[in-house]
């Protein structure tokens, strides 16, 4: 009897192990859905309560009016230069040059930013620090790069080839009908190939962003640690209206 029971236990165990081995599953069906997060999904109060103090602090800081835009500024209102781009590049020059000059006794010759770096329009009406966060959400700093004349020429060719309104300031580039370079002026003076120039730009571009490879041949690099966004906010605090518009800093000559 005892022996039988022992065997029985043993047998059961074997059967069970076997049964459960069979339990191994296989994937038979996959179903996919994309669920849009719209107003049909209620907001969880505890989350909103948790976020509220963070949100309130931000709103207090960001929503006080600093300046005024008489009309909407965008990066797409001109072919090769734009109102928003010109504003940004001009701000970088006017705000960063005193900083750079104080540290190095030298001056920024011109500014180059990238079209993609402008992330929002500046709507007509009151302009606040929030506007600066929308236009420039990234923590990009202003960097001054010393370039040889050859590198500046490469920079001009890059702009000519890109056919995009990359923001520039204190730099004029005129293309002919074939998109070849007709004129380069820096601070209103004719470009001198034997001269080195100080170019203010974004640290993003110096580190290889947008394939602006001419920055790889930098003769010197000065990191100002000045956020582009903070330069914008500082500028907004100084002026009562934003008067930026499209001009002739980067143009293509019309059909003659």
């Amino acid at each position: 009897m005892g022996l039988f029971l022992k065997h029985f236990v043993f047998f059961i165990t074997i059967v069970l192990c076997f049964a459960c081995k069979q339990e191994r599953l296989k994937l038979t069906e996959i179903q996919a859905n994309r669920v849009e997060i719209d107003s049909t999904h209620p907001q969880i109060d505890s989350i909103n309560t948790f976020v509220a103090p963070y949100r309130n602090r931000i709103n207090t800081v960001l929503d006080s009016t600093l300046t005024y835009a008489p009309k909407t500024l965008t990066k797409d209102d001109g072919a090769l230069n734009s109102s928003a781009g010109n504003l940004m590049a001009d701000i970088v020059w006017s705000e960063a040059n005193p900083v750079f000059n104080k540290r190095t006794n030298k001056n920024i010759d011109f500014v180059l930013l990238n079209h993609g770096g402008i992330r929002a329009i500046i709507s007509e009406g009151n302009v606040s620090a929030r506007t600066a966060y929308q236009v420039m959400p990234f923590e990009n700093t202003i960097v001054v790069v010393e370039l040889s004349g050859d590198s500046v020429l490469e920079l001009a060719h890059y702009l000519a080839k890109s056919q995009r309104a990359h923001p520039i300031a204190q730099f004029q580039l005129i293309l002919d009908q074939n998109n070849d370079i007709n004129t380069i002026r820096i601070q209103g003076e004719k470009f001198n190939k034997n001269h080195n120039y100080y170019v203010a730009t974004s640290n993003y571009l110096v580190s290889g962003g947008d394939n602006m490879n001419f920055f790889k041949n930098a003769l010197s690099i000065t990191e100002t640690d000045y956020l582009i966004r903070n330069a914008m906010i500082d500028y907004f605090k100084k002026v009562d209206t934003l008067k930026a518009k499209i001009d002739n800093r980067f143009i293509k000559l019309p059909q003659s």
Partner: peptide, 26 residues
């Protein structure tokens, strides 16, 4: 920007099931 949530459901059956392959409904 948290506009959507992706959802993929996977169903498993015992190896003994008659189902052949994986049916994908997307």
């Amino acid at each position: 920007y948290g506009i959507n949530l992706g959802r993929i459901d996977f169903y498993f059956e015992p190896l003994t099931t008659s189902a052949v392959g994986v049916s994908i409904r997307v």
